[in-house]
Design a protein around this nucleic acid. Structure first.
Lengths: 203, 203, 203, 203
DNA sequence: GATGAATGAGGCTTCATTCAT
DNA sequence: AATGAATGAAGCCTCATTCAT
């Protein structure tokens, strides 16, 4: 009956804890942005989910867009995937994608990018983070020329699969045999990351 | 004295021509959606560009979302690309993408998808059209099993490159030699469209 | 019981009349700005007084600030005062001020300037209008050099008396004999509008 | 690690010094009110400038408006000007104004009045202080009848010049020869402070 | 049938103040 | 006594849509 704060919630959270409130807001934003994209999430919704006052979003983060930036900055887009040898990258990218398809959702960052990718308001933020957490780490692990271009190609596959999966649903993707799908995607990523053929030879 | 619409403008278009007005609205919507995405285009902007009354959007199309659907239904996402032999598909897809990068923009449908892909309001519409104009035509040209899955993989690349290109800009992509890039993309599309390996053999 | 629109109001105004609604909004703004100053008037208050929807303020005028500008542009600050011979200007300015003190309020423009003079948000608007409706017309009627400076001096008296009268109330000013007060103010305005002494003679 | 307040800052001011904190708040308010006017200064800005806690504004002064009152009460509006013989008052007022125009800004009190003169929230406060620090001291130095009225007239010039100068800028005023301008303003103040003509003689 | 005025909801942000710590 | 987190209201503006003309 008391509209706020159930008595028996998990650990009746301490009021007046700036750090904790900030954390709750950030977490709420992470979830909502991942689910609905940047501009279909209102700051009121974020505050409500965090059980905090709306004004605190602005007090703590400055603006909705800055909060969005902090969400993106918070974690890696592809945790544990970009580490290791370049030769194993295609396989690990593929495994990551398949894991997402079969065992739950993409990480919040990837889903957020996915959902918000078309929004011109936050284009600079998206761009910065896409570079920093996807293209640059990938490129850093590639040998040879055109590293950035090849990293961009792989990033395109990641982003594209994310979008398409979300739009079309998981049915088709899940229907495939996981191992076969992994092999297929490995081939795609390998093609994306392969060195470009030398130009001008037979053009 | 007549504040609007001088009588003697160029080609004094007939007032009260339902079909023509409808067409102009559709064309205006096509252009604006392609440039700004679904929900950063207001119906007022559409009506203004079409020099038509705002309320006609609703009268003719029912709603903004329905108008969006009609825009998508209007034309192919990849004109002239999906025709021809399956074996040539990777090359033609790659050429199409490279052409877009080097000579102007994507077609309106693709740009519209690109811009609006994250918007939950129109998810069903996007889904329906993505199937109809991208996945199904592609799948129809593929031999063997998993046609839909392989088509989806190629569609993912198309969509992903669109998103990434718009976010990161064209600099990197344009820096590459066009023919080498075409070859690279051809390999990526070929990998996407290739038959899946038979599962369970060496897993 | 119908929350809006009493049955017996004066001339049950026609609904759906853009020009009339616009006029009502402008008039409401004129009154409220004159009474409370620019930023203590909310667009909601203006709309409420005009019995119109809030959004119409923005639709018709673009913004609150633009509406404010239109209010200022609407009428002269000193109607019928700035016309006539320069030699009579001090007297007419004084008579105008005394008239205001004894028979009602200043015109809305002057009161609006008065109230809003300290607001940095609309400084450019205030400046433009103060120039256009007060300083320039005055200067145009002055002979000799320093016309603008002398006009500014007279304008300062007008503005200053407005402010002080509003702050301190009318009691003191009304206690004085109107004719004596007029003569006094005439002398002040004459001093303000008089040519400056030639400089550098005995400096 | 300590995000705030390094231990070794310049003059590690004692925390918990009520009197000093109060003083700093007052000084910060003085400066900010003078520059931006009453209601474009937030209590947060005052507290930040004073490096004090926001809530102390309310604790020490009761409210923002009361703090504003205390600022006005703090010092004379026209220091060193209102002292001396009545016959010299016009000249000293003029010199003061010209000094302000040519060598820097008005004192904080005058600028504060200037900026905040239109704000109805603090009208009573403004009124009280305008009387106490401007009109009454002036009137006290005048001989003859109508002292208050004449003082009010002079105060109007001071206030009006302040407003106009801030709105229109200093260009025109500074273009004039300082001595000629002083003489001009002296004449204006003399007219304002002169005894009123006896009424009823030739009306 | 067509027009466009009007609507009501919702968007983000900022503020002075209160209250638990 | 002092802190600063939290509050609730209010600010302007934009939008898709409806309805009287």
């Amino acid at each position: 009956m008391r509209p706020k704060q159930a008595n028996d919630g998990p650990a009746p959270r301490p009021r007046r804890d700036r750090a904790a409130t900030r954390r709750r807001l950030l977490e709420a934003a992470r979830e909502l942005f991942a689910e609905h994209g940047y501009d279909h999430v209102s700051v009121r919704a974020i505050a409500a989910r965090a059980e905090a006052n709306v004004a605190l979003v602005n007090r703590y983060f400055g603006s909705k867009a800055a909060l969005f930036g902090e969400v993106l900055a918070g974690e890696s887009a592809l945790p544990h995937v970009l580490e290791g040898e370049a030769v194993e990258l295609p396989g690990r990218l593929a495994e990551h994608v398949v894991r997402l398809i079969h065992h739950g959702q993409a990480g919040p960052v990837l889903r957020t990018l996915d959902r918000s990718v078309g929004d011109p308001q936050i284009q600079p933020i998206i761009r910065r983070h896409l570079e920093r957490i996807l293209v640059e780490p990938l490129a850093a692990r590639l040998q040879g020329p055109d590293a950035r271009l090849r990293a961009t190609a792989a990033a395109s596959i990641v982003m594209g699969i994310g979008s398409v999966r979300r739009i079309l649903g998981l049915a088709d993707l899940r229907a495939a045999d996981p191992e076969a799908l992994t092999a297929h995607l490995t081939a795609m990523f390998a093609a994306a990351l392969a060195p470009l053929p030398e130009p001008g030879r037979d053009g």
